[in-house]
């Protein structure tokens, strides 16, 4: 005979009731908040992407890639692969996905970097925030996705929220790590010249932590892109729609075409953001080398 050592506990029904009551009492308010976010951030960004002529977007991507990497062949290769997505007939959906990713990324950066800085400068905050970040990264998002739909309406807004929750932890962690790992002697030197907290942050910590922060942004971008399918499950349009449609319909071809487009986007964005991180490091070593030479 086994002895039951577990005290029975149950919180699911009370949680359900709580969510329902929040929907009844605050649902209308939250829906209007979501409408404001939609009209002022998400839709303008989407119009920017879907409204611009394709050649402009392709050449912009080429230009940014060149600025980051200084490699002609690579930039042209990226332009060709983005052009290829258009040939697959997925241009509009790709732009919708990019817009969703871009909106999420803006929110991720605006929220994530300050939190990372705060965590680096205050151990107490770091102690409290670290387990929260663990929850954000591991808690199955299908669990909170549908309550989010009930609270904030279906479509892009809950999709962006889920994307931000999922992609913000690496940026916060890497920002904190980057600032913590800044050479203490350099910080001491700056302080001894009378640098205030903000001056230290602006001119020493952030520039030196830049490679780590860029890696964080790169990771956040990749994770945001990985969320496209999940986003389409709650009515956000984009490439995820085709993947989901292919999935429910046993239409491998349709799903694969959209999948290829996601992979191309991922590779291009990954290389571009990485090249900015690397070139920052390369530039700095060049500058420091030159400064050393002057002495």
């Amino acid at each position: 005979m086994t002895v039951n050592i577990f005290v029975p506990m149950e919180f699911s029904s009370s949680l359900n009731e709580w969510i329902n009551s929040v929907v009844e009492t605050h649902g209308n308010f939250l829906h209007s908040v979501s409408a404001v976010l939609l009209k002022n951030l998400l839709l303008p960004i989407e119009k920017l992407f879907t409204g611009s002529p394709p050649f402009l977007i392709i050449s912009l991507i080429g230009l940014i890639a060149f600025l980051g990497s200084r490699k002609w062949m690579l930039s042209i290769g990226f332009m060709l692969s983005i052009y290829f997505i258009g040939c697959l007939g997925l241009w509009e959906k790709t732009m919708q996905t990019l817009a969703l990713m871009g909106s999420s990324l803006i929110l991720t950066i605006v929220i994530g970097i300050p939190i990372g800085i705060l965590m680096a400068s205050n151990k107490q905050v770091s102690k409290i925030a670290t387990p929260i970040l663990d929850v954000m990264q591991t808690f199955p998002l299908f669990v909170y996705m549908l309550p989010a739909v009930m609270l904030f309406s279906i479509g892009k807004v809950p999709a962006v929220m889920a994307t931000v929750i999922y992609s913000i932890p690496p940026l916060i962690r890497l920002t904190e790590l980057g600032i913590r790992e800044v050479n203490h002697e350099i910080q001491e030197a700056a302080k001894s010249f009378g640098a205030s907290y903000w001056q230290l942050l602006r001119w020493v910590n952030l520039p030196l932590a830049r490679p780590a922060i860029m890696t964080g942004i790169n990771q956040a971008t990749m994770m945001a892109l990985a969320m496209t399918v999940v986003a389409s499950m709650i009515g956000a349009n984009g490439l995820g729609e085709d993947i989901l449609g292919g999935l429910t319909n046993l239409d491998f071809g349709k799903g694969a075409a959209a999948g290829v487009a996601v992979v191309i986007l991922a590779i291009v964005i990954d290389r571009i953001t990485q090249s900015f991180g690397q070139s920052a490091r390369a530039k700095r070593t060049r500058v420091m080398g030159a400064a050393g030479g002057q002495k």
Partner: peptide, 9 residues
């Protein structure tokens, strides 16, 4: 997107 999202809405 999904039946769950339809029901939730």
């Amino acid at each position: 997107g999904t039946g769950g999202a339809l029901d939730a809405t």
